[in-house]
Computed example of a mutant assay.
Amino acid sequence: MSNELTEDQIQTRVFALIEEAGPWKPPDALTPLRDLGIDSLSVMDLLSAVEKDFSFRIPDEDVNRFANAQDIISYVKNRRF
């Protein structure tokens, strides 16, 4: 995987992972995951998919940082692969 993904590319992939994880389609990156009906177990499944897709591990201490898709996008963007 290239280290040079743009934020738009990351957003597209994160939105696809959200849609694959369940019947959710985020209207934008700032909509809270809970408002989409994504419960804590589904968030864990989503983060596992993010780890697999972007080939890195999210440490347990970071799991509660993700309130919306933008939080995930920013986290991925700021990761050093």
Rank of each mutant, 00 (worst) to 15 (best):
L36N: 02
M44E: 06
V50P: 07
R65F: 03
F81S: 10
I38T: 01
D39E: 11
V50F: 14
S74L: 07
Q11R: 15
E51G: 03
R80W: 06
D8T: 09
A29T: 13
L47T: 09
N68F: 13
F54D: 04
D8C: 04
A67E: 14
A21D: 01
P26M: 09
K25A: 09
S48Q: 06
V43M: 08
D71H: 14
F15Y: 11
D28G: 10
K52Y: 15
A49W: 11
L41Q: 06
V76L: 05
E19C: 00
R13G: 08
D60K: 06
P59H: 03
G37N: 02
E20L: 14
Q11F: 11
L33C: 05
N78L: 06
D39S: 05
L41W: 00
Y75P: 15
S2P: 15
E61A: 13
A21V: 00
K25R: 11
D62C: 13
D8S: 09
I38P: 03
I18R: 01
T6D: 05
D71E: 10
T12W: 15
R13H: 01
D39I: 12
T6P: 09
Q70N: 12
L47V: 08
L33M: 12
I38G: 00
I72F: 03
V43R: 02
E19W: 07
A21I: 00
M1S: 04
A67W: 13
E19Y: 00
S2K: 10
D62P: 09
Q70E: 14
E7H: 14
